[in-house]
């Protein structure tokens, strides 16, 4: 997948945002619902993509020294 996942999710977010812009029922709360939905999508996408990007080409690797000698695999997965 790699970096393409971000592009894909971005497309999904754009699609969902436009859907929520277009299909929010008319009424006194239309603006609030629209804005809330789109901002939720955008902020969650931002945070997810930043987290994903930060691990895409890691500059450091996890270092462990407290692994127990016995059945180490069990510990690794917590």
């Amino acid at each position: 997948m790699g970096g393409l996942l971000i592009v894909f999710v971005f497309a999904v977010v754009v699609a969902l945002s436009s859907a929520s812009y277009l299909f929010t029922p008319r009424g006194p709360n239309q603006t609030v619902i629209r804005t809330a939905l789109i901002m939720t999508l955008v902020s969650c996408f931002l945070m997810w993509s930043i987290t994903y990007l930060a691990q895409l080409h890691p500059l450091m690797r996890p270092r462990h020294s407290k692994i127990r000698p016995h059945n180490p695999t069990e510990h690794v997965t917590f």
Partner: peptide, 14 residues
């Protein structure tokens, strides 16, 4: 690449 959030392998590392 861990797809959702931070990789759990990082937990408890130095």
């Amino acid at each position: 690449t861990y797809p959702f959030g931070i990789d759990y392998a990082w937990h408890g590392t130095e």
